[in-house]
Design a protein around this nucleic acid. Structure first.
Lengths: 194, 194
DNA sequence: CCTACCGATCGGTAGG
DNA sequence: CCTACCGATCGGTAGG
C-alpha cells in the first residue's frame, strides 16, 4: 500500500519537524541543560518517552535542530543576496537578513550555537560544516569590498567584529523597543562601509 | 579571643573566595546547569555538602560570583581610564581593559552574564545595578565623543554594537591565535572613531 | 507512539 | 566543614 506508507511517512516527518521546532525554541529560551526531554514532549503533545522514537538522544535533537535552523538561515541569506551586484548594497541586505535569522521567527538560530558545548566533537564538526559555508558567503563579500577600498577597516577579524555586533543584539533587542531591525542593520552597515 | 576569631574569619572568607572563583570558572566553562555543586566542591577540595555551609544555594553562588567579577572589572575600568582627559584615547583604553576583563584571567566576567536566566527576578535586579554602573561609564565617554563629532556613527545603540563586537570575541579569541588583544582592541576602536 | 519503569545524578539538609 | 542521606528529577529503555 504505497499511498498509505507515503502518508504515514509524511505524518512521521511532520511530527519530527514539530519536535525540532519545539526543541529549538526551548533550547534557546531556557538553555539545553535546563530543557528536559519531557518539556519538549509536552510542547508537542507527546508523552515523556516518545521523543526517543524520533531521536536517539537529547543531543541528537539539539544537533538536528541546529543544522535545520542553520540551513534555513543560509537559504534565506543566499536567496536575498545572490543577485545583488553592488557589494555594498549586498552587504546591507545580508546584514538585514542575518538580523532576521537571529531575531525574527521563534527559533533564533545563531543563538542555538551557544549550546554547542553540550555536544561531542563529532557533532560539533558536523555543525562546523554548515556554519563555515555561512561564514564563507560573508567573507567573499567583505573581500570584494576591501578590494575596492569600501571598508573602513581592513583588520583581519572584521567579519568576527561584525558578527559580534549583530549576534549580541539578541541580548538586548526587543520587538516592541525603540529600534527596528532596519535601523539596527543600517547602523551596523554604516560603521563598516565608507 | 578577638585575635582567634579574626583569624578564623579570615580563613572562612578565603574559603568563600576560593569557592567563588572556582564556581565562576566552571560556570563559564560548562554553563550553570551543567556544573554541579559537587564539581565546585571538588575544585576547592571540599566534600559535596560543604559549599552549602558558605552559600545557601547554587543560585546564591552564581549571583555572588557574578557580582564579585563585575565589581573587579568595574574597578579595573575606572582605575585605567578615569585620569585620561582625551576621550578618544580614553575609549581606546577602556576597550582594551574590557577585552582584558573578558579574556584575560580565568573568570571571563561578562560571559557569566549569559547565565542570568538561571536566577530569579530579585537576583537579576541586584546584578542589573552593577552592570548599569559599568554601562554608564561607557555611555558618558561615548556621549563626550559624539558631542565633539568624533564618532563615525551617532546611532542610538552604538554602545550596544560596540559591546557586541567585544563580547563576541570570547567565542573565537584564542590566546595562542594570530590576533593579540591589543590588535583586536585597535580594530574595534578604529571602526568607531574618526 | 504510550505505559511503566530503572539507574543515576543532583541540590540540599540534619546532625555532629 | 564532613558523613550520611533524602526526595525529586531526568535521560533513556523495554515491550507492546
Amino acid at each position: 500500500m504505497p499511498a498509505g506508507r507515503k502518508r504515514q511517512g509524511t505524518l512521521e516527518a511532520n511530527r519530527r519537524e514539530e519536535l525540532l521546532q519545539a526543541a529549538a525554541r526551548l533550547f534557546v529560551e531556557k538553555g539545553f541543560d535546563a530543557t528536559t526531554t519531557r518539556d519538549i514532549a509536552e510542547a508537542v503533545g507527546m508523552r515523556s518517552g516518545s521523543p526517543f522514537y524520533h531521536f536517539r538522544s537529547k543531543q541528537e535533537l539539539l544537533k538536528a535542530a541546529m543544522i535545520a535552523g542553520l540551513e534555513t538561515g543560509y537559504r534565506r541569506l543566499q536567496a536575498a543576496s545572490e543577485d545583488i551586484v553592488d557589494p555594498a548594497q549586498r552587504l546591507r541586505v545580508m546584514i538585514r537578513v542575518h538580523l532576521g535569522n537571529l531575531l525574527e521567527g521563534d527559533c533564533q538560530v545563531p543563538m542555538l550555537l551557544y549550546e554547542s558545548r553540550a555536544l561531542d566533537a563529532a557533532a560539533r564538526a558536523e555543525i562546523a560544516t554548515v556554519t563555515d559555508r555561512y561564514q564563507e558567503t560573508w567573507q567573499a563579500t567583505l573581500d570584494e569590498l576591501a578590494a575596492i577600498g569600501k571598508l573602513r577597516s581592513s583588520a583581519a577579524p572584521l567579519r568576527l567584529l561584525l558578527f559580534g555586533m549583530l549576534n549580541w543584539s539578541s541580548q538586548w533587542y526587543r520587538a516592541d523597543g525603540a529600534l527596528s531591525l532596519d535601523q539596527i542593520a543600517a547602523a551596523a552597515a554604516d560603521l563598516l562601509l565608507m
